[in-house]
Amino acid sequence: MNKIFVIIASLFFVPLSLFAKWEEVRIGTEGAYPPWNGTNAAGELEGAEIDMATEICYRMGVKCTFVAQDWDGIIPALLNKKYDVIIAGMSITEERMEKVDFSIGYMTDGACLVVSKDSALASYQSELESVNLNNSDAATQKVVGSVVALLKGKKVGVQGGTIHQNFIEQYASSALLSTYSTQDDLNLDLGAGRVEIGLADCGAFDDYMSKKEGSNLTSVSPSMGGGPFGDGVGGAFRKEDDDLREMFNDAIKASLADGTISTIAKKWFGRDISM
């Protein structure tokens, strides 16, 4: 009888544990944002951030477990202590910093606009390859202006609660915005033609466009960064866990310095997006 009770109890409650010295760290990720973090056919998490986090945990000498969590609730679940850090392609923005603290950035990717090859929008050409919205020079202003003009009155899809949604709301409120709960859903609807323009990290689209279903899509805009797009991607921590954040910062610095993160980025993105 007692044995049965113990088995049932352990099914429900993983032992109450005190992590005084961070011997175990739980990492929250989405598992639906390849190549940052995705799920493969074996049901396992994979992606650049999964490789990177595994490497960082090895360097810190801690045991890490991954917890999959929908993007919708990814910050609330961190605050609720469901896991201890978010490594999920999350850009460092001031809005989020009101609730969480970030590690130093480890990778950064511009934001891209993607349209169907058949659409008239595909002929749009930008004068610059990439723009940083923090700059206020005339060339940047002109390109941003033309992007905003392109978005006007169009059906634009973004993942909800992202920097991309913020950009549309702040810069192009005249666009007809649809928000999706995952990047995969946005990709499916772009492929189906329900939205005319998709906005997300360039890498997230590259992955889809390289597949058969996404082959009719093309990226049109300059790659954009800065401003509402934030300052690169970092790990998010609860405000009180400064010690854990420092541990991550040291390990990230070391892996950036010796080129480990750069190697991982090249493997998954085909280009070096490490910071």
Partner: peptide, 19 residues
């Protein structure tokens, strides 16, 4: 993607992180 009551609620949560 329909913005009825729950859709709006989700949108507010994505800004306030207070479900």
């Amino acid at each position: 993607t329909i913005m009825e009551m729950t859709g709006i609620a989700r949108k507010i949560i994505s800004k306030t992180f207070a479900p």
